[in-house]
Amino acid sequence: MTAIAWQRRRAAARATWREFASQRGGLVGLIGLAVITVLAVLAPLVTDASGLDVTRVTARPWEPPSASHWLGTDHNGRSVLLLTWWGTRISLVVGLAATVLSVLIGTVVGIAAAHFGGWVSAVLMRFTDFFLVLPSLVLAIALSTVLPRGLGTIVLAIGVTSWPATARLVRAQTLAVEARPFIERARALGGGHGHVIGRHVLPAVLPLVFVNTTLTVASAIVAESTLSFLGLGDPTRVSWGSLLHAANMHGAVSQRAWWFLVPPGLGVVCVVLAFTLCGRALETVLNPRLKGER
């Protein structure tokens, strides 16, 4: 029996992939992500990390792009290309970690709010709505101001402020699934909470959660860059946001140092766009509402 089930799942995965691959935007996004991830992983292997150390620079500050420094140098004379390359790592790590935290909270709260009903649901929903309305950046700023600076803080600040959208989405989808007669059939067969959630709700909700995850990564990366830009990031590490923070603090605009401004921002745009394109393509493949009911 399981052999057949696995065969079917493989076939379904292949069909999903074909449908995904037929969308140019999604494919472009996926390739972009693959390239960026490979670059981020390879950074310590192909570049020399000592170039990040301010005390060991040899070039002059604010040097425009040249053959030796393809993207010029920053206010300390460090290579902007090297900085941007290394910044990829922190931006990606923070974005992914914050997303995992956020999606986890959102999924659990969303399913619980829809499934159990009664006062549990009412309290959870009220809680979600409250946080949904709060401007998440303001909350994240507050959290990262009062907690000690560091990667953990920034992940926490983004993670615990961005879950309500996921919770709402998951709740809506869970409610939609639970209104379907097959849930009633499962109950009539004798299935309890565990059975209904595990066998029917989760499998139906997970594709949507997956789509939502790719879109959440995109906004988490923007949030990371914003917090770091405001000077709330980890001061000991290079990220795209902290580079832009430095650019702003040291007057890159008045220096007309476009080479220091453009690359980190372009990094954010590329990664966010790649995740968004993937997410939207996945959404059209996996979201039954967009595809039309069978």
Binding site: P181, E184, R185, A188, L189, H200
Partner: peptide, 13 residues
Amino acid sequence: QLVLQDPTSALNP
């Protein structure tokens, strides 16, 4: 046991 009206929605797709 219960048999529902619309078998299309009574079965998990």
